[in-house]
Computed example of a mutant assay.
Amino acid sequence: MNQTLPESIRTTPNYYRISAVLLLLIFVVLYTSFFGCLMYAIVVVENEELTAVVIAFLLNLLFIGITIAAFRSTSHKMNVIEVTETGIRIKYPMKFKSVFMHWDQIRGYSKSSYFYGGQLRLKSSSIVIYTNTNQIHEVIRIYNSGFDNLQKSLKDFPITCLGHEGFNTKTHKAFFMKRVYKYDKPETK
């Protein structure tokens, strides 16, 4: 391939989304600290019934569990992508993880949509990158500033566009929903 590649392209995280997640975590830490002091005061100072304390403790655990689930669901979606002459680097700042893929390790990419917001069914554009080792990396517009420049310029790099795929889910492990990707497995000939 003798074509001249364009200069590198880099997206940045949507800092408003990261700030919201970090503020949520700070709130949980403060809430848990306050709750611990309150439980100490109820049990030690007031000598209240243990049943009320257990119910309050279980409600606190439920709140913390929901918060951790919200953090986990957004932490793997926030990423920074950098496209260079040699390949693509994807950094996950909330997970302290980085992945680099040379052009020959990438099978292709597809354009897709990502739905969020529960019953509101809000929609955002996304790019799904498939590797030859069946790894999938999704770059979502609402989590990346500079996504539009990336989407326009990907066609100038040596990467195959596999097409467009819809947002499909299936039930995974009891009642959890998992995204199903159209080009997940390479086609056999």
Rank of each mutant, 00 (worst) to 15 (best):
M1H: 09
N2R: 08
L5V: 02
L5H: 04
P6A: 02
R10P: 01
P13E: 06
N14L: 00
V28G: 06
Y31S: 05
Y31L: 10
Y31I: 01
F35T: 07
M39G: 03
Y40R: 08
V45R: 09
T51A: 11
V53R: 04
L59Y: 10
L61M: 11
T67N: 07
T67V: 12
I68Y: 14
A70V: 15
H76L: 10
N79A: 01
I81E: 00
E85M: 13
E85L: 10
T86V: 11
G87C: 01
I88D: 06
I88V: 13
I88C: 03
H102F: 11
Y109I: 00
S112A: 08
Y116F: 14
L122H: 11
S126Q: 08
S126N: 06
S126C: 11
I127V: 07
I129T: 08
N132Q: 12
V139L: 13
K155P: 03
I159S: 00
H164Y: 14
N168A: 14
T169F: 09
T171P: 03
A174W: 11
F175L: 12
F176Y: 15
R179E: 15
Y181F: 14
D184S: 13
K185G: 02
P186R: 06
E187Q: 14
K189W: 12
K189S: 08
K189F: 13
